[in-house]
């Protein structure tokens, strides 16, 4: 079955690649096709096709197939996507980690390359290539239990991301990024899929309810946890030391020089 698809896909892909380029970056860019705003179940049902022709398929062939394979089977430049599921694709696209500008570049957070409609289409398409975790339902409200969120965060996340969620280096060229600006759904997706160097967390380690609680706690950290003033990066004593030294060298040495300045006597 894959062979037939590959043959057919290869022929169509060449034609569509040109069309896809034209549609996204070339002369036809800006002419948008309305995407399907559907629930996860609908997406799974309606996007079983791997052939080009759907919006998601077009985008996939144009931006992803070179590294991930035309049917998501993987290539030396990129892993297979058949086990990704909607959560992984949604996470990678919305945080701008994918697509990579070139193969074997470090995977870093950035500006998303696609608009909302395109992301939904791509997610639906790639999720249909195989089986994987669905996009978790992460709810954050004023009534969220930030205490439970804090406890779960400290136990599972703080070691890499920092108690203040400012992120840190984890070695091997990897970085656990800051989380204060991450959307709640992406927080939940990352926890479930374990992107990059991050391990995945099962529902029995971090329950579905705790996803929302952790996301709520992160929002609390961003907005309400600094009664003492400016947080200077939230990385703790290192930044505090720099600030202290700067204030001392500029402020206090400046003051002592002013006090003993030599003035012309009248």
């Amino acid at each position: 079955m894959v062979d037939r698809r590959a043959l057919g896909g290869a022929a169509a892909a060449l034609a569509v690649a040109a069309l896809g380029w034209a549609a996204t970056a070339g002369p036809l860019a800006g002419a948008s096709v309305p995407a399907a705003h559907a629930s996860s179940a609908d997406l799974a049902a309606t996007t079983a096709q791997v052939t080009a022709g759907t919006r998601g398929g077009d985008l996939y062939q144009a931006s992803c197939a070179a590294c991930h394979g035309q049917a998501g089977e993987g290539t030396p430049n990129g892993p297979a996507l058949t086990g990704s599921g909607a959560a992984a694709v949604d996470f990678m696209l919305r945080t701008g980690r994918m697509p990579l500008p070139a193969p074997n570049q470090p995977v870093r957070r950035g500006t998303p390359a696609f608009a909302e409609d395109d992301i939904v289409a791509l997610v639906a398409f790639v999720a249909g290539l195989g089986q994987g975790p669905a996009i978790p339902d992460v709810q954050v409200s004023a009534a969220s239990d930030t205490a439970a969120g804090r406890a779960a965060y400290i136990a599972n996340c703080a070691a890499c991301h920092g108690a203040g969620a400012s992120g840190d280096a984890v070695g091997g060229g990897q970085v656990a990024p800051p989380l204060l600006d991450t959307a709640p759904t992406q927080v939940g997706e990352a926890i479930r899929i374990g992107p990059g160097a991050m391990p995945a967390f099962d529902t029995r380690q971090i329950s579905d309810a705790e996803l929302g609680q952790i996301a709520a706690y992160l929002q609390f950290l961003k907005h309400e946890a600094a009664p003492g003033g400016a947080t200077v990066g939230g990385v703790g004593p290192v930044a505090e030391g720099y600030v202290g030294w700067l204030v001392y060298l500029v402020g206090l040495i400046g003051v002592t020089r002013w006090i003993e300045r030599r003035r012309k006597t009248p």
């Binding site: 070691a159 890499c160 990059g196 160097a197």
Partner: peptide
């Protein structure tokens, strides 16, 4: 210190205090 960091890609544990891996 508690060796709390785990890098899943290369299956190593890292201690946050002085980066023992």
């Amino acid at each position: 210190c508690p060796v709390g960091l785990f890098r899943a890609t290369d299956r190593v544990l890292i201690c946050p205090c002085h980066q023992s891996t």
